[in-house]
């Protein structure tokens, strides 16, 4: 890993593409997760009663319960979405970049 490899990689347009795509994707997903979580926290802080409303007429189960579970599931799904694209598309791009820099 001499300096020339690094230089070659940097000049490869695919490297620019990889960094741009991955960074946009990662920050978007991070923003989605943060928006979901802090949205939930703000509802708890400012409108807790809305989460305590019954899910249907006369139910004991409240709205907050499926929402809480949905947030847990969304965290898992978001990691799945990222891993799928990163381990496929991004890793393939990386492989090509390394190949072309040899």
């Amino acid at each position: 890993m001499s300096a020339s490899i690094h230089e070659k990689v940097r000049r490869n347009p695919k490297f620019q593409e990889l960094c741009r795509k991955r960074s946009t994707f990662a920050w978007t997903l991070a923003a989605v997760m943060l928006a979901i979580y802090y949205g939930f926290i703000l509802v708890i802080a400012f409108a807790p009663a809305s989460l305590g409303a019954p899910l249907w007429e006369g139910a004991k189960t409240t709205v907050g319960f499926p929402i809480g579970i949905a947030i847990i599931v969304s965290a898992f799904l978001l990691t799945g979405i990222y891993v799928k694209r990163a381990n496929g598309e991004f890793d393939e791009l990386t492989r090509q970049i390394i190949e072309e820099s040899k």
């Binding site: 990662a26 920050w27 997903l29 991070a30 997760m33 943060l34 979901i36 979580y37 939930f40 708890i44 989460l51 305590g52 409240t62 907050g64 319960f65 809480g68 947030i71 847990i72 965290a75 978001l78 990691t79 990222y82 891993v83 990163a86």
Partner: peptide, 24 residues
Amino acid sequence: GFDGLIYSIGFLVGWPVILFLVAE
């Protein structure tokens, strides 16, 4: 009751963010 779920969620949501920004 429900408050326990709030804490659980707080502990969990850091993980996706770690993955997106830090892990690799």
